[in-house]
Nucleic acid binder design. Structure first.
Lengths: 193, 193
DNA sequence: GTAAAATCTTAACCTGGTTCAATATCTTTC
DNA sequence: GAAAGATATTGAACCAGGTTAAGATTTTAC
């Protein structure tokens, strides 16, 4: 199993010793993903946090009318997964789908709990991880309030370089909270500039 | 200093022993607040996390045109403060203002770092705290995308019972991301039902 | 206790973004 | 490589929510 990406990610916050790397390694499950594959399906309780070793995925939920709403993209070096479902053990409302071939590391809830109990360094890592995610999300909320759809689109392209090639326009529109038709108009307008 | 609220909050996640409570207690600074008082002013680096012992506060940022945008309310038992400014040591863009008389506990950054180093239990507490805040914020993002202003207003009233009496309509409107005029229309419509 | 300031309401008009429907393009699949 | 299905574009009608401005009500300050 290729541990390079995750270990260097974790080491940017805390510094793991050999034993901790080994413990982490034996907790993780590597999984190759194919383009279009459903990694997590809504309706069952989430069992893993998902770390991207390579490739792109998106997480979305499907409303009562059957429309998908994309709430997150993730690429190499990012975590994904439904924290709420994981911790409360309720069925997740989100599905996660591969947008390209790649590899993910699955981190089962039980193994995570064990690791957290045994090695306080992981407590610290996840504290900082959640802390940072929280800051980013706060920023996104502000952005959503104050910015227009066009500028949100531009900032999507900045924040997820390369992602646009892998995602259909309708999913980008969904992530931005607008209709595909309107995104189409925005792109046309931007080209003319 | 009244430690009841904060200790019982923390004990709902981890279980503090006497020494830990003592250490926490000596790290905190109690401050009485008056209605309308500015607790944190934007422009200076944030130095504290803020725990509400009693009363109500709101956090907002002021844009280039001078308009305030409310991003958070907090009442008894909630944390407030700018995590980004605290951790990156940059000037905060948010101001925090008391909406009623009350009491806050200020938790200085340096003291927090010390506590985290010495007592892993606090790592765990903050890991869970941030984790939960993250879940709530994810939910709020979905809500903002899919729900109409009217239903966001209704869900504001549910989530912050009693808050409406302390906050001016224009600040509620700001929190909901709409104009005060439009909130006025919504309220009128709801009354007629 | 009254004047000034702030907040709230109402109404007419405006705009960013949606809906629907028709056409065009790109992908699959056999 | 043709047919079918998905995805993207365009345009017209429409709607949620914004803007502006004026009046009504409440709060604040002296």
């Amino acid at each position: 199993m290729n541990m390079d990406v995750i270990v260097s990610h974790i080491n940017s916050y805390v510094s793991l010793n050999e034993e901790e790397v080994r413990a982490l390694s034996s907790a993780l499950i590597s999984k190759t993903i194919k383009q279009g594959e459903l990694i997590v399906e809504s309706g069952e309780p989430a069992r893993y946090m998902i770390f991207m070793n390579a490739g792109y995925v998106m997480t979305y939920y499907t409303d009562k009318e059957g429309f998908d709403h994309v709430i997150q993209f993730a690429s190499t070096g990012w975590w994904s997964g439904d924290l709420y479902s994981l911790s409360e053990n309720v069925p997740t409302i989100y599905s996660t789908r591969a947008l390209s071939a790649g590899e993910v590391l699955l981190f089962p809830k039980a193994a995570q709990d064990q690791l957290l109990d045994k090695y306080p360094k992981f407590e610290r890592y996840f504290r900082i991880l959640f802390h940072n995610a929280l800051m980013r999300l706060q920023f996104r909320i502000i952005e959503n309030y104050s910015a227009t759809a066009e500028s949100r689109y531009l900032s999507f392209r900045e924040r997820f370089p390369g992602m646009e090639q892998h995602v259909s326009q309708k999913h980008i529109a969904s992530y931005l909270g607008i209709t595909p038709e309107f995104l189409s108009k925005i792109r046309k307008k931007l080209q003319q500039k």
